[in-house]
Design a protein around this nucleic acid. Structure first.
Lengths: 159, 159
DNA sequence: ATCGAAATCACCCGAAAGTGTGAAAGAAAA
DNA sequence: TTTTCTTTCACACTTTCGGGTGATTTCGAT
């Protein structure tokens, strides 16, 4: 699994900025330690270099910047050629091998009850509900109860 | 215009940039004023300057340029057996005070995704998804995601 | 210029959900 | 009668969910 450690990543920018500033200062100190001399024409030359590479940096950033993504959920309508009523598909239930009790549990899951509430309503234990729901997920080939509800409704197993 | 608004919000960064530039220029002048001899590698020094100002240029561009927006579409399949009667109730959404982002999350919950999967799909953190879903449950007056889906479908907030 | 809403994120903690294994009783089918 | 299926339950364990709190950033409106 992932690390449990979560850092406040928003401060990373500032941290990065501080580090780079420190690096610059360190560089200048290093240069100073090595007795580097400037003449006056060099000053102008360095200015030009600075401007050029600033522009270069800006250009580079514009080229490489990752575009900010905006998510838009659109609904793709899929029309089912099932004119008229919404009959429960018994064949599908049989085909998937879903038992009566499992269907009971599935229906109660679909209306948003918790496992404990389902257990209370069907007069069975919490563990039994878990067993049923697990086998439902297995038969429907899903991982979560929300997925199970979605798929079951799509297959007209429940409504 | 947009640029003016951005200037206002980013004026701290500009200030910071100016200060750092001034600091660097001051340091250079100081070094020059102290007759530090530049006996060693001139090209090395220029390279350092180039790198520094490239980085500063990149940083400046990233800070000031309005991010490019890339719209990413997530298709959500809606299975309809009775076309023509399934309109999304916008008034209900407004009445409940459900925001656009919360609606995104709600739609992804409805198709059975886990919070972590939603976070991956919307490019936000798991904690943010939790915050959104919590406020959804509050606004819909439900306790669980399955209930939220059930109620939202009943209110025609989602399909 | 100030303020509020929306969106983002972190962290802690407890509750609920889900997995895996095993088992027992009753009903139906072979 | 034996076998198989369904339903029931337990228990340990991991993962996910949800509540609560607090914080930052951005945007729009006043």
């Amino acid at each position: 699994m992932k690390f449990g450690i979560q850092l406040r990543t928003k401060h990373q920018e500032i941290l990065l900025y501080c580090i780079s500033m420190s690096l610059i200062l360190f560089l200048l100190k290093w240069l100073e330690a090595h007795f580097i001399v400037f003449n006056y024409r060099l000053d102008f030359f360095i200015g030009a270099i600075a401007i050029i590479f600033t522009v270069l940096g800006i250009w580079l950033a514009l080229k490489l910047v990752k575009p900010k993504v905006e998510i838009r959920i659109i609904e793709k309508k899929v029309y089912i050629d099932n004119p008229g009523k919404t009959e429960i598909n018994q064949q599908e239930i049989v085909k998937l091998g879903i038992s009566r009790r499992e269907l009971d549990v599935l229906n109660l899951i679909a209306i948003g009850l918790s496992n404990e509430e389902i257990a209370g309503k069907l007069f069975i234990s919490l563990n039994t509900v878990k067993t049923h729901s697990s086998s439902i997920f297995l038969k429907l080939d899903v991982k979560r109860r929300t997925q199970a509800v979605e798929k079951a409704k799509r297959l007209n197993i429940i409504h």
